[in-house]
Design a protein around this nucleic acid. Sequence first.
RNA 1: CGGGACAUGGCUCAGUCUGGUAGAGCACAGCGUUCGGGACGCUGGGGUCGCAGGUUCAAAUCCUGCUGUCCCGACCA
Length: 507
Amino acid sequence: MNKIVQTAITPTREEDYPEWYQQIVKASDLAEKSPVRGCMVIKPWGYALWENMVRVLDEMFKATGVKNAYFPLFIPLSFLEKEAEHVEGFAKECAVVTHHRLEKGADGGLVPAGKLTEPLVVRPTSETIIGDSFAKWVSSYRDLPVLINQWANVVRWEMRTRTFLRTSEFLWQEGHTAHATAEEAMERTRQMLGVYATFVEEYLAIPVIQGEKTPSERFPGAVDTLCIEAMMQDRKALQAGTSHFLGQNFAKSSGIRFQSATKQEEYAWTTSWGASTRLIGGLIMTHGDDDGLIMPPRIASAHVVLLPIIRKASERQSVMEYVGQLADALREKVYGGRRLVVEIDDRDIGGARGWEWIKKGIPIRVEIGPRDIAADSVFFARRDGAHQEKQSLKRPDFLEKISEILDQIQANLFARALRLRKDHTVCIDDQDEFNRFFTPQNPEKPEIHGGFSLSRWCGSAECEAETKERLMVTIRCIPFEKGPNEVGPCVCCGRPSDRRVIFAKAY
RNA sequence: CGGGACAUGGCUCAGUCUGGUAGAGCACAGCGUUCGGGACGCUGGGGUCGCAGGUUCAAAUCCUGCUGUCCCGACCA
C-alpha cells in the first residue's frame, strides 16, 4: 500500500528528457493530441496561458505604433512563387487546397470535386499576401511606415512534430512593416526583437540571448534575421522569437513602390517578426520540474488555487463561505497588470487534488481548513519550492503580501533559469574540447550534455556545415553582446577569427 | 522522407511465441467511511483488441498490405 512515488512525472528529466516533456504536457493539462496528424488540441489551461501571452504582446506591439489587421488563410500559389528564396524555403512544407466541393463517391464516401483553377496554399507565413495589400496601400513616402500585425494560425507540414515545439498547425502573430529607408526598417527589426526579449524575460522568466542568425539559418527571403535564443533544461537551444530585415526583396516581388520626397519611385524596405505557441514549449522546458509544470506568475493561467479542507459535512458550509470570501478578496488584487485569477477546488479526491495543481504549475496553493479559519490564517505552498514546504500567514498579511510573494516566485524562476544557462555556457577554443563537449557518453541514448559554447568562427558556411554534420551542433546566433575580441583560431578550421558565436544543439 | 520500436476500455499494460467467446491496476459513476500531502470498502458503466484483406471450424493471437504514434536522423519557428 505504501507506494512511494518520488516525483509526479515519470520519467524524470534526467532519465528521459523527451519523454518527460511528453508526460508533462499531458499531466499539466495544457494540451492533448488530436485526431489530425501533427496537430494539437490546446486545452483551457493551456489556452489561458496563450491568451495571456497574446494580451501582453499585443499591448507591447501597439505601444510601438503597430496596428492589428487580418489577411486570408489562403494564399494563391502564384503569390508564393514570386520570391525565389521564399518558395524554396517553404515549398516542402505547404498544405495545398485544390478543390472546393465534396461529392458522393462510388463507395459512399466523399470525394473532392470542383477543381480550383489555381491551387491555394494554406499560409505557412504571410509575407506574400500581406505584401500584395501593402502594394495597394502605399504610393507615397507619406504612406510610410506601414506597421501591421496579425494574430493567426499557420500551417507548416512538418515531418516530425512535437506538441507546442513543432506542430503542423500553430498559433502565432506575424508583424509586417514597410519603411521608406533601409535604416528605418533595420531599426524596426531590432526594436521588435527587443520587444520579444523583454517579453520573454520579464513575463515568461526565460533568459534569452539576442543575436543575429548566420546566412544559412536565415528566414527564406530575408537579408538579415535576428533572434532570441534560450537554453532549455536539457541544455539545447530554443529559438523563442525572430525578427527579419527583408530588405527590398519582398517589396520587389510584391510591387511595394512609393514616390519619395525627391519624386523618385523607390521600393519600400520591409520587415517581419513572429512569435508562436512554441513559446509555451519553451516555458515548459525552462521551468518544469519532475513534479510537473511551473508557471511564472505574470503569465500563469491562474495565480492561486484554494483547496478547502472539509472533515465533516457540518463544516462544509462555514469552510466554503470563508474560502469564497478569501477568493473574492484575492480577486480584488491586481498583479502584473491583471486581476488575480483564483481557482477553488473542493473536489473530495484526497491528496490527488493537491498534486493535480502541482502538475498544472499554479504558482500558489492554499489549504483552508477549520484550524486556519479559527486562527484567521492562510496555509499555503509556493510551486517554486518543495511540495511539502508550506507556510502560514494571517489572512490580512497574506492579502497584503500576495503580490510580493508572486514577484518572488517570478524572480526566483528567472534566476534559476539564468543560473542553468550560466552553468552550461562555456568559452571553448580547442577543437578536441569542443568535440568532447558536444559528444554524449552514451550515443545509443544520449544523456543530457553540452550547452552553449562561445567559440570562434571564421565566418565560412563550410565550417558551419561541417560542424553540423559531425556533431549536430549549429550556430544559434552571433550575439550582439560581444565577448572578448582577441583573435584566435576558428574552432572548426583553425583560421584566425575574432568573432565568438554561440554553438549549440537546437530544437 | 530514411532507420528502429510500438498499436488491446480514458490511462498504463498483461494476454500473441503455443489460435478456442476480453483481463488487471489506475481513472470514471453511485453509496458509505474518510480528508492538513498521492484514502478505503461495496456496487456499477465502459473495449467489433489501429484499419483492410487472407489462412482457419475458430484470429487480439498466424500471414500480407495500409494507417497512426513514439524514438533516432534529414528539414524547419
